[in-house]
């Protein structure tokens, strides 16, 4: 009997069948059993979770994902690598949600440290982590949420010379940055590496989301050419709830892209204004038109 078969049998032995609603039955395995198998084998917790799903056994932590993602979708999520550019207001919530969703590999890029004016909105911040590296704090948070996830910590500036190396090997890149010039650098790299790029930005009660696929016009359709622009966030500030709301929308885009479900918000800008409760889909010019 090979090791793979033995592991599969061990997983099935540790699993139990539960009613998953609507008459469906699913085999599940608990966190304790899953980690014990990892500890007694030479596999990482992530490899064990993948093996579980490949054998039709759902780690209990993903049970509520299965109805929308399916077992194959959850497997795709665990196999995938997502880069999060920025670990502040948007980025902190994106990281939190991607960890809970079960993205197998996260690349977190930010060179900043938490300061007091982050406390109103940056979900990873707290009085106890002021002056600490955002990337290190985020990695610790991910480990607390889901210790199976592999995190690559990149406490570095994103610039023309570093960006391709940071994003190479990723499946999706999330924009959680706070300047247009950095966004343009990341978008250009995604073009070169042929990666999907999920854009998000916030100010006051407003936020926007768009997914850019290779070949799309992308950010220049929103902001025009060049990157010498400023935003109204200097006037509106960024209150507590807006970043998390827009981050959640960005995460939905990531999950859709990886699992191949739904339609990405492409060649249009999804614009949310919480002040008047409006949500608009603004069509944008497409490449070559």
């Amino acid at each position: 009997m090979n090791a793979g078969n033995s592991l599969a049998k061990q997983i099935v032995r540790c699993s139990r069948t539960i009613a998953a609603g609507s008459g469906r039955k699913l085999k599940v395995i608990g966190l304790e059993e899953s980690r014990a198998i990892a500890a007694h084998s030479r596999l990482t917790p992530l490899e064990v979770e993948i093996t579980c799903l490949e054998n039709g056994v759902v780690p209990m932590r993903y049970l509520r994902n299965i109805g929308t993602a399916g077992i194959q979708g959850q497997l795709k999520l665990l196999y995938s690598t997502v880069a999060i550019c920025g670990a502040g207001g948007l980025g902190g919530s994106v990281i939190e949600l991607l960890a809970r969703q079960g993205i197998g590999h996260l690349v977190i890029i930010d060179n900043g440290r938490f300061v007091e004016n982050n406390l109103n909105r940056q979900i990873m911040s707290g009085e106890d982590v002021l002056r600490r590296s955002k990337v290190k704090v985020a990695a610790q948070r991910v480990r607390r949420i889901n210790s199976a996830i592999a995190v690559k910590k990149c406490s570095t500036y994103i610039n023309d010379s570093s960006v391709d190396g940071l994003l190479k090997g990723c499946d999706v890149v999330v924009d959680a940055l706070d300047s247009l010039s950095s966004r343009m650098v990341v978008e250009a790299s995604c073009r070169r590496l042929k990666l999907p790029f999920v854009h998000g930005a916030i100010a006051g009660y407003c936020g926007q989301v768009m997914t850019v696929l290779p070949g799309d016009k992308g950010l220049s359709a929103i902001y025009g050419p060049g990157c010498d622009v400023r935003g109204v966030e200097a006037v509106t500030g960024n209150p507590s709830a807006t970043p998390t709301a827009i981050a959640a929308w960005e995460v939905q885009e990531v999950v859709k892209l990886i699992t191949g479900t739904g339609e990405p918000i492409r060649n249009r800008l999804l614009f949310v204004d919480f002040a008047d409760g409006s949500l608009e889909s603004i069509p944008l010019a497409q490449e070559g038109k």
Binding site: L90, G91, S179, R230, G231, V232, E233
Partner: peptide
Amino acid sequence: IDVIARFVGG
């Protein structure tokens, strides 16, 4: 003509 408030915050 769409006049869309511009922002780049994150």
